[in-house]
Amino acid sequence: MQDLIDYVRERGWGLKYDRLGRRNGEYSRGLIKLTDRRLTAFTLRMTLAHEIGHAHHDHPWTDDPVVWKRHEREADIFAALLLISAEEYARAERIVGGHQGAIAKELNVTEKYVLLWRENYVHPRARLRHLRAV
């Protein structure tokens, strides 16, 4: 968790605990808020990573359900790529095999983030090949 807090501070975003009703977190104009309710360390970490995704994209608040859904997906993808490194993923896969749930448990992330990581991770060498072809 401290690594995520450091990530937030290094980028100059604010971080505070607040009463958020039923929400676990929110982002607005450079400030990430996490709920002041007692959450498990796991839920707090997933929430902070997700809100970092919103901060990274500087998503504004929206009532438009189409835009909201796109913002949520972008924040989740960023969180997955932030929380899972290629090395950690490979190690987890060697230990537990290819089962998404087992990998998620080994990496201490949600299954959704494992799926998003698989869908969106591009190996640096593949990026280089693409750049050379352009």
Score class of each variant (00 low, 15 high):
20 L>F: 05
20 L>G: 09
20 L>P: 07
20 L>I: 11
21 G>S: 04
21 G>E: 06
21 G>L: 01
21 G>N: 05
22 R>D: 09
22 R>W: 12
23 R>N: 15
23 R>I: 10
23 R>L: 14
23 R>E: 07
24 N>E: 03
24 N>M: 12
25 G>R: 01
25 G>H: 06
26 E>P: 02
26 E>T: 15
26 E>N: 13
26 E>M: 15
26 E>A: 15
26 E>Y: 11
27 Y>T: 09
28 S>A: 15
28 S>D: 11
28 S>G: 13
29 R>N: 14
29 R>T: 13
30 G>C: 06
30 G>R: 01
31 L>H: 03
31 L>S: 05
32 I>F: 04
32 I>P: 00
32 I>T: 06
32 I>M: 03
32 I>A: 03
33 K>F: 05
33 K>M: 13
34 L>M: 12
35 T>H: 03
35 T>D: 09
35 T>A: 08
35 T>Y: 05
35 T>E: 05
36 D>P: 02
36 D>A: 14
36 D>L: 06
37 R>M: 09
37 R>P: 03
37 R>G: 04
37 R>Y: 10
38 R>M: 10
39 L>F: 11
39 L>A: 11
39 L>K: 08
39 L>H: 09
39 L>M: 13
40 T>K: 07
40 T>I: 04
41 A>G: 12
41 A>Y: 13
42 F>W: 12
42 F>M: 08
43 T>C: 08
44 L>N: 07
44 L>K: 14
44 L>I: 01
45 R>G: 05
45 R>F: 00
45 R>S: 09
45 R>V: 06
46 M>D: 14
46 M>F: 02
46 M>N: 12
46 M>G: 12
47 T>I: 00
47 T>E: 00
47 T>K: 00
48 L>E: 06
48 L>W: 08
49 A>K: 01
49 A>N: 09
49 A>S: 13
49 A>D: 04
49 A>G: 11
49 A>L: 04
50 H>E: 11
50 H>K: 06
50 H>Y: 06
51 E>S: 07
51 E>T: 06
51 E>Q: 11
52 I>T: 02
52 I>S: 02
52 I>R: 01
52 I>M: 09
52 I>C: 07
52 I>G: 06
52 I>E: 07
52 I>F: 05
52 I>W: 02
53 G>V: 01
54 H>R: 08
54 H>K: 11
55 A>H: 06
55 A>W: 02
55 A>E: 04
56 H>D: 00
57 H>I: 01
57 H>K: 10
57 H>N: 13
57 H>C: 09
59 H>Q: 03
59 H>Y: 02
59 H>W: 02
59 H>V: 10
60 P>Y: 07
60 P>G: 11
60 P>S: 14
61 W>H: 14
61 W>Y: 14
62 T>Q: 01
62 T>L: 00
62 T>I: 04
63 D>C: 09
63 D>M: 08
63 D>R: 14
64 D>W: 12
66 V>I: 13
66 V>M: 06
66 V>F: 12
67 V>N: 00
